[in-house]
Simulated assay, not measured.
Amino acid sequence: MVNQKKIAGEKACEWVEYGMVVGLGTGSTVYYTIEKLGELVQQGLKITGVATSEQTARQAEKLGIPLKSLNDVVEIDITIDGADEVTGAFQGIKGGGGALLREKMVAEASRLNIWVVGEEKLVDSLGNFPLPLEVIPFGWKQIKRSLEKEGIQATLRTQQNKEIYQTNNGNYILDIVNQTFTNPIKWQEKLAQVPGIVEQGLFLNYVDIIICGKADGEIELIKK
């Protein structure tokens, strides 16, 4: 059986060149990108990584990939990341792994953004996957109530042990469920008006190239 994530993740390494500053995303598909980059570094490729999560940083350090913080680079040449959903119009939802704020900051600083996905992540419209909102713990219940007054259903993300999930930034995540985002730009503007929402998982027009691994072993490249 073809590992769609692996073939997509490894394919993205072809865009990485010697001396580049590379944004390293978070998730189960970009995991394979980072593993491959680790192999290439051992073979002599010189890059500097900027990790979007503590999880990614640990993986990269274990593989010998040199890292810098976002504060220590002026610009990122290329960022490779995954997505929870993406449309043919280059609109996506990210944040299933809880790293949406850092992922968006790194994407914003990048000259080129590549997303690696399996074909099940390609959708006609956004919303089948819950939309994550990173929120300040102080008053998160007020944020939830504010959304519910607007008819928006949001659930507090918890861990398997039922404890509240916390991001690497010490914040909570509310996941908007049972909602279709047919006009994501309007939703982005709407959510930006809610005090206490630090960032939301709509990534609109960030991605330049989508690399999609398919069940038959083929790789589809979707470019702007």
Rank of each mutant, 00 (worst) to 15 (best):
W15R: 15
N168T: 07
T180L: 13
D208P: 03
N168R: 04
R145W: 07
A215E: 15
A60I: 02
A154S: 12
L131H: 03
Q159N: 15
G9N: 01
K121P: 09
K141N: 11
I136C: 11
Y206G: 12
D175E: 08
I65V: 08
Y206W: 06
G88Q: 10
W140Y: 15
E39L: 11
T155H: 08
V116L: 07
R58G: 05
G151R: 09
L45H: 03
D77I: 01
K94A: 03
Q159E: 14
Y31E: 09
S69W: 11
A8F: 00
T48E: 07
G97H: 01
G44K: 06
E75V: 10
P184F: 00
E150N: 09
R111F: 14
T56E: 09
Y206T: 02
G96E: 08
I93Y: 13
G38V: 01
R102W: 08
I80V: 06
D216V: 05
R157G: 03
P130G: 05
K149N: 10
T155V: 12
K46G: 14
E148A: 15
C212V: 13
S110N: 00
V198P: 04
L204S: 02
L101C: 08
G97N: 06
A83D: 09
T182K: 14
L174C: 07
I219K: 08
